[in-house]
Amino acid sequence: MKQEYTLTIYTENQVGLINKIAIMFSRRKISLESLNTSPSEIEKIYRFTIVVKETETVVKNLVRQIEKIVDVFKVYCNTNDEIIWQQMALYKVPTAIIMKEVKVERLLREYGAKAVVIQEDYTVFEATGQDEEVNNLLQELDKFGLIEFVRSSRIAIIKSSEGIHKKVLDMEKNDPTKQPINNEFLNHKSVIFEM
């Protein structure tokens, strides 16, 4: 069964990594629902957050292939219940309508949106949330002459993760083979992609 998986990929901060990761998907004709790159809690280590809709088998194989990339430290793969995730959206609407329609303001409060810029002719609102919230506000604002809309990619925090600190320390030690490596993917789903 296909479902959403969020991949969290820690990499060396190096030119070309985005291509190295992206071709893993394009080669298999897997489309990315969302892709975000950002710094991580450790300097010079980058964090990619990728969302795909795929079956467990496909994702499991994909994750192992991505982990094989030399500059990739670690890939975590989680279902939505295992993560805290958010995305941000910006909405541009005509200011005139905002002024007239009190309903809009109520709406914005309801969705926790706030005004980022108020110009004479347009106003930009910002909202943060999951698909549903962001999309509902989109539909509502559409009725009031929405001019422009953009949504960011997903970012996610893994509930059970201890971050990458310890992993990096482990991997920095000169003898990597001394570190225990889980391969009990047969029994433990949550650490299914641990290596």
Binding site: T11, V70, D71, F73, M171, E172, T177, I181
Partner: peptide, 9 residues
Amino acid sequence: VRSYRAKPN
């Protein structure tokens, strides 16, 4: 290479 593990344990 710190991000690379040649072989699993």
